[in-house]
Nucleic acid binder design. Structure first.
Lengths: 189, 189
DNA sequence: CGAGGCCTTGACCGCGGTCAATGCCCGTGG
DNA sequence: CCACGGGCATTGACCGCGGTCAAGGCCTCG
């Protein structure tokens, strides 16, 4: 359980055993029920999650109640409502377990403490930021230049697990289209 | 000229005079003509720019030749094709001077050298990344939840300089709508 | 003074949304 | 174990936002 997180971290930065113990000591375990919310709209983002099993999603809700998903985190991935984390303002993003999910989480307070205690953690955070940046910017690009069908095909190429594992409703919310449209796209091939 | 950059940096990190001299020594000055491209499609991003005067934009071109603008950098702002910078892959993003523009730029080689030489520069980069992340994620959100008119009004609120200073064509490319639609939106108020 | 680019506007169209009906699957409780 | 209910997927009918294309006028700059 913690080994999964430890080996994830070791792939990104080099730390010795005592440092690793320090890092792991800041993380706590939690089981989440399907559909359980871990961050509500307007709350400040307080925790960073690492998924052991299951799936978290980060999403928006507009005034009419329509949901749009910005990110899915599966096993062995981190998830944070980063904008609220960075700006320390109330979050526009919500966060929810999509399946029964097990996570390790660290409070933002302790996250920042690690930044001070371990120079290496600054690098870890930087690389996390870089990945998050590349992800979102690629998504932004796809909204600029691709129509619905192209986005769907692209998703099948780049991230098939999302289509295979999740409901149409969730996939549609990720692509920013309606469930009905996704259903028609799939029918047409 | 260099003072502008120096005071920008001092607002973000604390460095002494020798360190500042080191940083500034890596930047070079360049004048750009209106419409001059500083990064072509498919090139690797090689430089980070700081705008002294004028305006740079970072944009995409789709297969039909339609342009979409991801970012405008005005006086006293940085601009990089960050995705290509991070991934070291050919850039999907192009970069161009929108007006006659004066910049200071640093090669990525030297940027990385600074990361090694100055621990503080790691923090500078991290904060740059954070800002870029927040920017793009907010834009992504606006594509999820806002229609054309809402996006336009929001832009007027958040970033009026773009509307005031740039042509309709450029503003439309920033909003991801056609020039004709923007013209109609403005007419309707 | 001419040419080219930009803005506006009208006519038209199509992608993708909405709404509703139907059917399916699955979880839950009697 | 079966019956019921709720959520999800599919599909048809309809519609509207925003795109495209083209024409006309204006401004800028060489």
């Amino acid at each position: 359980m913690e080994e999964l997180l430890a080996s994830y971290i070791k792939n990104v930065i080099s730390v010795n055993d005592t440092e690793m113990q320090l890092i792991l000591s800041f993380f706590k375990f939690k089981k989440l029920k399907k559909n359980e919310l871990v961050l509500h709209h307007g709350e400040a983002s307080q925790r960073t999650f690492f998924v052991i099993k299951g799936c978290l999603r980060i999403f928006y809700i507009d005034e009419q109640g329509v949901e749009s998903t910005r990110y899915f985190a599966f096993e062995n991935q981190f998830a944070t409502a980063l904008v609220s984390f960075i700006t320390a303002k109330p979050s526009e993003e919500l966060m929810q377990a999509v399946e029964p999910t097990e996570v390790l989480y660290i409070s933002h307070e302790n996250f920042y403490r690690l930044l001070e205690l371990l120079p290496q953690w600054e690098k870890f955070y930087r690389i996390y930021l870089e990945n998050a940046y590349v992800n979102n910017t690629n998504r932004l690009q796809s909204f600029f230049v691709q129509d619905a069908l192209t986005k769907y095909r692209y998703l099948l190429e780049e991230n098939p697990i999302i289509v295979q594992r999740l409901s149409n409703k969730l996939v549609a919310s990720y692509l920013g289209i309606s469930q009905a449209t996704l259903s028609r796209l799939k029918a047409k091939k």
